[in-house]
Design a protein around this nucleic acid. Structure first.
Lengths: 341, 341
DNA sequence: TAAGTTTGCACAAACGCTTGCGTAACGGCT
DNA sequence: AGCCGTTACGCAAGCGTTTGTGCAAACTTA
């Protein structure tokens, strides 16, 4: 009872394989198969639980309706969220998604991309962790569409959909300044990564516009809880401690919160904090954390849209899109009285 | 430069397709291909960037080295974590994972399973959301291995790897009782789901062993924040409010915390709380939440192991395994003085 | 009724790979 | 010289589809 194929149905109904194929793939009228025949074949297919072999179909049609999604860590809620959106959105377009976890390792990334190509995915959506676009650009020439998300490269023609990290950094900092803060420290993640660079650029620009550039303090080296913790310790114990800290990711935030609590300081009375990345739990911290929320939903949806268009041959494929983030204001930032400055 | 195949390599090297195939799939010595030939072919393959077509390979070998993973919600950190483990573990065994989000919908689930079978996955790991195992059992007869995780069915021979939810419910409740609590309310999720039933059973058994069964109070109807919020409101405003609340999931917990805060009560001084599910953020709530942590790592690893064994033909395939959870003690439960009882 | 048109389907090649079997060439042995 | 065992590879079938083309039979039309 296991493997029904077009052949077995053909034998049992007496029609040729091609007729069966056309009926079962909805091409009946295009090939003028009579309604009677169609019904016979469809009934038999149903009866014997025919399941088409998509490998064979893919081999001949050169289309698999699979898109590959590569992300650095499925375990990170931010990426999991994006994956969730992409999977759902792809499904509405008739695509199945293969999710690969590159573990933030460029070696893995290259290997995984090749593996997906081997599997003949129709297109690839990727959060690149390589510093160099060369590999992906080469792949892209192989006429397989690629869309970058969350991170992009400086001088590349690869299409991307990302948060406008510059604006996020800028708005967060302006928010702090607007409430009277002047000594604002920024704890960053991986310094060379594009999102990080842009966030820092926004931070600096906001300071500059308010003649505070001399107060700029950027430290930190990766997107880890540990990093947030250590850098915060240093800030709190150093000279002229900041009145506010801007953490560039949710992980860094957690480390910062831990360090602040250990020091006995209260948020926001003694020190204010603002962060990048959104998360349900941030509403349940005490106090709820003011943050820059990235438009994951829009990113996922747009990426799929661009990719599927490109797969369909419509060259909307070279879109390079930045989506503005949203500032979610909660209670982790205090308004400073003038004398406190 | 696009599509190199065995044929093109064959033409350029002058060797037959079969020879190329055997060399490139490491079967060279088994078929006594001379070292000189091997080197020639391998060099040419490298030079022209040959990428094997796994569709074709799958068609002939009837093995794809893909496993399908179906989970109810990629967006839920608990499931995302499991997915992460499965993907990583599967990769070490040479398998790629196709992740599908069933959105907690049994109709989707069936459709998704069929789709994966169409794609000729070698096996399936699934968090079932159907109440009835009939469909999966039928599929399983189709000689495609299936392993259930996180949830299982009562009277089925399908292999599974799950948390020992009974023990989790029992230990959490015993922990509360041990600290002097006697009025312990339990807010549950979907009542008929196996994990929920088992957790409640453990809760009741702990009460019973301490002659507190008359105090048992189980309410709630699904694993949502909303549910946790509403049920907690009811509990706090009802007669003889509990001294402790046991929430059966992280989502329910969040709702409960919100309700408690709104009521002005303090945790744990005024009311204690303990929850199911682990999450980094729980350490950063104030206070950090005492919780029953599910062994996601072990579940994922074991599930992959059982599945791959079964795929390999070794009938370790009918394992049914419960793994004990771990109690993580934080500060959300107070010790009650005797007179407070 | 002959010629032309339409209807309804079958043939067979192709997709890229694996694999059982066959066999030519060569060397060693008697 | 004849026989045999290796060595080193090639042949061709088959996996389950799709799809361009071909072709009888039926139906029109004049």
């Amino acid at each position: 009872m296991a493997n029904e194929t077009l052949v077995t149905i053909s034998q049992r109904t007496g029609f040729s394989i091609s007729t069966i194929s056309r009926v079962l793939s909805g091409q009946a009228e295009r090939y003028r198969i009579s309604p009677a025949t169609v019904q016979l074949i469809e009934e038999e297919a149903k009866r014997c639980n025919y399941i088409p072999n998509l490998l064979a179909k893919g081999l001949t049609t050169r289309r698999t309706n699979i898109i590959g999604l590569l992300i650095p860590s499925v375990d990170n809620p931010y990426f999991a969220n994006i994956a969730s959106v992409v999977i759902r959105q792809a499904k509405t377009q008739g695509f199945t998604t293969m999710v690969v976890d590159t573990m933030e390792n460029e070696k893995n990334e290259q290997q995984d991309v090749l593996s997906l190509i081997s599997r003949k995915v129709d297109g690839i959506i990727i959060v690149p962790c390589d510093r160099d676009p060369a590999f992906l650009e080469r792949i892209s020439k192989h006429n397989i569409p690629i869309v970058l998300i969350d991170r992009y490269f400086d001088a590349t023609s690869l299409p991307y959909v990302c948060t406008d990290n510059y604006q996020g950094g800028y708005e967060a900092t302006m928010h702090l300044i607007g409430l009277g803060h002047e000594r604002i420290a920024c704890i960053q993640g991986v310094p060379y990564s594009m999102p990080n660079k842009e966030r820092v650029r926004g931070y600096r620009e906001a300071l500059r516009q308010n003649n505070l550039e001399k107060n700029a303090r950027v430290s930190g080296e990766d997107f880890s809880v540990q990093n947030g913790y250590l850098e915060t310790k240093l800030l709190l114990n150093g000279p002229s401690a900041p009145t506010a800290i801007f953490t560039l990711s949710n992980t860094i935030l957690l480390g910062a919160v831990k360090a602040i609590r250990e020091s006995g300081l209260r948020i926001p009375q003694d020190i204010s904090i603002i962060s990048f990345d959104n998360n349900t739990y941030l509403d349940y911290l005490d106090p709820a954390v003011t943050r820059v929320s990235q438009p994951t939903e829009e990113i996922g949806i747009l990426a799929v849209k661009i990719l599927t268009e490109s797969i369909a041959g419509n060259e909307a494929g070279d879109a390079q899109i930045l989506i503005p983030p949203k500032l979610i204001v909660c209670n982790s930032v205090s308004r400073l009285a003038v004398h406190e400055k």
